[in-house]
Design a protein around this nucleic acid. Structure first.
Lengths: 118, 118
DNA sequence: GCCATCGCGCAACCAATTGTTGCGTTAGTC
DNA sequence: GACTAACGCAACAATTGGTTGCGCGATGGC
């Protein structure tokens, strides 16, 4: 499996990443409910949902006047796998980069802990 | 550290990812040398290099009429850390996603092995 | 020294993506 | 039956990623 550009670029957009976050946290949502927590209009959210739907990262079910979206977990897992794959591809110098990356990640986790305790 | 949208979207572009690949493999390169191995013109590559330079993923040194670019490994490591961070954010909410992703990755690695042996 | 050429930078232009506003339609609610 | 909530669609603007075309400074063969 080579890197899937469509999948990657879909997740590359910061708004779409936040949408996936929200859908995961709340176990689903509609264009309207998502737009209330995002700095864009409902129509913009709808367009993003079309993109995510087209590549299968989300699916929708219509109930009455609501159109509920939820994440396709298997597909999202594929995306996560791509991140690690690209990360792995980076390096004959990977070892060094990976070590640095892990340090950054550890610092990050430490900061999260501090923040959590406040 | 929250996710850095600029860093992410810089690496989100497939052409820029390939550019980083090439720069890593060959230890550097110019807009012209990169464009020879990419399906876009030199001018397009230049624009991408500007983007990568602006966020510090690459640096340039001018020598005569050539402008040599090389990757900033620390910055690239930060990018890799972001991938794992986002992956972890989704994974922590859904253990299952993480498990599936790891399975996909293992399959991927296995395929790589096979390919290598041929 | 001179001139062909190589690598770059800049500007104009085109197409796709991402956002907006405005309006129409359909499904529930009173 | 009227009101409202959720949605779809269309027109438009801004940004982004690509192209072509041109000009300029550095280099190297003669």
């Amino acid at each position: 499996m080579t890197v899937d550009d469509d999948l990657w670029s879909a997740v590359g957009d910061p708004i779409r990443r936040r949408m996936l976050d929200l859908l995961l946290i709340e176990g689903g949502g509609t264009a309207t409910s998502l737009s209330e927590r995002l700095p864009v209009t409902r129509q913009a959210v709808t367009k993003h949902l079309v993109v995510l739907d087209r590549i299968g990262l989300v699916h929708s079910t219509t109930a009455g006047r609501e159109k509920q979206f939820r994440v396709d977990e298997a597909q999202l897992a594929r995306a996560v796998a791509q991140f690690t794959e690209v990360g792995a591809a980076w390096g004959s110098r990977l070892r060094r980069i990976k070590r640095i990356a892990e340090t950054i990640q550890r610092d990050q986790d430490a900061n999260d802990d501090i923040r959590k305790k406040q």
